[in-house]
Design a protein around this nucleic acid. Structure first.
Lengths: 129, 129
DNA sequence: CGGGATTTTGACAACCATTTTCATTTTGTC
DNA sequence: GACAAAATGAAAATGGTTGTCAAAATCCCG
């Protein structure tokens, strides 16, 4: 029964940036979907395990998910205001992480890299209205 | 009354890697310190706010703290097994993050970069036991 | 199509790190 | 010493996430 899981995946695709499980759940209910919170959590986890969506933690420790365009390894540039997200590839960072790790005798190196900023729309003087 | 806060800071200095508030609390109690969990949390937050300690989130969403050697901006290479932590400076990454951000019109760019691996001690064939 | 094993679902309770509350204690100041 | 402000801590509240378990959906095989 992957119908629910697909529904969750679709809900995620309709979002611009990263959304929390609770967000996805609320939005799905708003659109009339009959689904439970537990199922949303499990679907999101399954999707994440399968590499179908990316996960990261907010500053408050909440897990947020996003259906990404590419399957390949990449990072995110996230607007801290509106949540708009740009996927960025960073070969330089990958190499840097590897170098730093092996330089200190570490193996099986992984890394987490996220860039936050204020996008051009949000940083524009929107005081006119 | 910064006595408690200093005690928390000291407790953190005695640790090799990142420790959670609960860890610090437990350790302090073991050493006979009279302090409450709430106070440990608040001290850790105050320390973090003042830039005295670094904070990051574990995969489980727990906040972990570390008294770092330098006040300047740096990142961490953490052993996922024993928690040993090496502080690393990465000018290349800083520049990369800035470049990526401005390239997409983002301003006020910040970033989180953490590198995980298995240190030489932990990756050694310790099967002899 | 029917029967039964298997998986999924979801309401609710349980978890657990963290925060809030609030009364008490401590600290700083005159 | 007196008083205002800040710190402390025990207990309760919060809130995201996970576990439980019975009901429902799905699949497999004939």
């Amino acid at each position: 029964m992957t119908a629910r899981r697909d529904a969750v995946h679709d809900a995620l695709r309709n979002s611009e940036g990263f959304r929390s499980a609770q967000d996805v759940y609320a939005e799905m209910r708003l659109h009339g979907a009959k689904i439970g919170l537990t199922t949303v959590y499990r679907a999101l986890q399954a999707l994440a395990d399968g590499g179908k969506v990316d996960v990261l933690r907010t500053d408050e420790g909440e897990s947020v998910y996003r259906a990404c365009a590419t399957d390949t390894h990449h990072h995110h540039l996230v607007c801290r205001r509106c949540g708009r997200t740009v996927e960025v590839a960073g070969p330089a960072v990958e190499r840097w992480a590897e170098a730093v790790g092996s330089e200190h005798g570490f193996t099986e190196i992984t890394h987490t890299v996220e860039v936050f900023g204020t996008c051009s729309v949000c940083s524009a003087p929107a005081q006119t209205g």
